[in-house]
Amino acid sequence: MSGLSLWLRYARASLAGQVRYPGAFALQMAGHFATTLLAFAGIWILFRRFGSLHGWTVGQVALFYGLVNIEFAIAEMAGRGFEIFGDAFLRTGEFDRILLRPRWTVLQVLGHQFRLRPLARLAQGAAILALGLAATPVRPALFTAPMLAWAVGGGVAFFLGVLIGQAALSFRTLESLEIVNVLTYGGVEAGQYPFDLYAGWFRVLMTWIAPLGAVTYYPVLAILDHPGVPPPAIAPLAPGLGYLFLGAMLLYWQSAVRRHASSGS
């Protein structure tokens, strides 16, 4: 059985526990959806008051907003095991059990929980993205659709990479790891807006070190055919940085696990 189908098995098992009370669950999701939607209402209010943002329209900003929320929601659904790794695996010694099973550690931690709660964020992100696409002229669907898929993949890879990096750090310390929130929740906040309004140091940091801009800003430039730096011809390549970031974090994870096996617990 391949890794993917095993992960699907894990996911199905984890759903069994989460939807034990479907009524209450649906209510919770609906409430979540409504309240997260208010975040975009805030942006909309600002547009009403100020008219435009650095030359961007509200429809264009909706593309950034929708894209980054979709990316983070999917990563959060799948990566929950890494998000709570320190508490759920290291404090409890459950990580030993992971090592006792003949599968890749990453696959098993991913399988720990498939979380449904971010569905609300996913739904609102998709809704806002759809509104944005309807309100804004973009390049033809033949380009835009695959470009969005490639960008979402890169974004999920980026956020998963952040969660995996956080889990790998927790082998060293279990304290103060909420600092990683600047890249997860802070990343979503930053990715909701076009990057050209940020200061230079911030853009460089968030594109080349933690490639958030590469999976939010540049792909949207590409589908808008928006003149900028880099030119729209190169922008489509940007989400690749998200995959590279995930790769680097996976290498870091592997070395942290190896070190853990030598230092013991």
Binding site: E175, L177, N181, V182, G186, Y193
Partner: peptide, 26 residues
Amino acid sequence: AAALAGVVTQIWWGAINLMVYAAFYG
């Protein structure tokens, strides 16, 4: 340590917000 980490997160968050507001105010 948690307080320190929290403040760093808040500073980051604040910085993003400030840049966005500054752009809106134009």
